[in-house]
Computed example of a mutant assay.
Amino acid sequence: MRTIVQRIYLLIGDFVDLLYPTLCVGCAKSLGFNERVLCTKCRINLPETNQHKEPYDENLLNKFAGKVPVRFLASFVYFKKGGIVQKLIHTIKYKGQKEAAKELGNWYGYQLATESTLLTEIDMFIGVPLHKSRLRQRGYNQADWIARGLSEALNIPVAEDVLICLKIKNSQTRKNRMERWENVKTVFSVQNSSKVKGKNIVLVDDVLTTGATLEACTAELLKFGCNSVGILTLAAVNR
């Protein structure tokens, strides 16, 4: 018969396994001691963008040129169909691995803290929100959990009660940029507007594609008097 202590250890082990996958998301090999989400080899081979070193790259900011002013725009890694980053995004969005989203945000936050001055004078992170029905279905907002990881590494608070999603967006997958913008331009709204007035805000999302969703969120925040909006995403489509 198992002792109470043994049972407690088993329960703790089960809880840890629930929070963190025991297999590497990239190669499906068992994770070693102190490895989280990815094994050391897969983590080293992540296609990092290093955009935090050049946050004013015109190729990045052109996504928003003439639309909304963006303080900076940077992504942690490049997204390629069928690649390791796609596996990571799928895991954090559709397999319940919210702690994996936080872990990845923490990795990026540590990189930003040690290699960049990008986030000086930033007041808060805001994750791009999900509609309440989608949030109930998924159980969490992956953008908020990425933001929590960034927050932990950078000691900048996350505001989860400011930006809300008013209606469910139709799928963006097969839409061009103009169609995506039409799909999201009236989707988001600010509540508790006093929290954003005069503040320097960083929007956080999982993947940057055309930027239409982030543009709509930025426009809404600026409308309510925030001082500036920067954008960080976990991944960016490498076109």
Rank of each mutant, 00 (worst) to 15 (best):
E215A: 09
I164P: 00
E220G: 09
L214M: 15
Y140E: 08
N192F: 07
V207E: 03
G230W: 01
V229R: 00
V204T: 04
K175I: 06
V204D: 01
I164Y: 05
D205M: 05
T233H: 01
I126Q: 03
G198P: 09
A153Q: 07
D205G: 07
E179W: 01
V190F: 07
I164Q: 06
R148W: 09
R180Y: 08
L130P: 07
K185L: 13
T186A: 09
I146F: 03
A147N: 10
L221W: 09
N192R: 09
Q172V: 07
S151P: 10
V184P: 00
A143Q: 01
I231N: 11
A236P: 00
S194L: 12
L208A: 03
N183F: 04
M178H: 05
L214E: 00
N155C: 12
S194M: 09
I201C: 08
G149Q: 06
L135E: 06
C217D: 12
Y140F: 15
N176E: 11
N227E: 15
N155P: 02
V237T: 10
Y140C: 10
R148A: 14
K195F: 10
R177M: 13
F224N: 12
M124A: 15
V196A: 09
L232V: 14
T186K: 11
I201D: 00
K167F: 07
V207I: 15
F125S: 12
D206C: 05
D206Q: 08
E220I: 10
S133K: 14
D144C: 02
L135A: 02
S193F: 04
E182I: 02
D123C: 11
L154S: 01
K185W: 09
V196D: 10
T218M: 04
N183E: 12
G139D: 01
K199E: 14
K195R: 14
S228W: 10
T218D: 04
L150I: 10
G198Y: 08
I231F: 11
A236R: 12
V202D: 13
S228C: 12
E220P: 04
A212V: 05
A212F: 06
N200M: 11
R177Y: 05
N238P: 00
C165K: 00
A216D: 02
L214T: 00
G149H: 06
T233S: 03
A235P: 04
T186E: 15
T209I: 07
R177C: 03
K132D: 13
M124D: 08
S133F: 05
S194Y: 12
N155W: 05
R138C: 02
G127Q: 05
D206R: 03
L163D: 03
A235G: 09
G149V: 09
P157C: 08
V202N: 13
E215C: 13
S228D: 13
N192M: 08
V162F: 04
N155H: 14
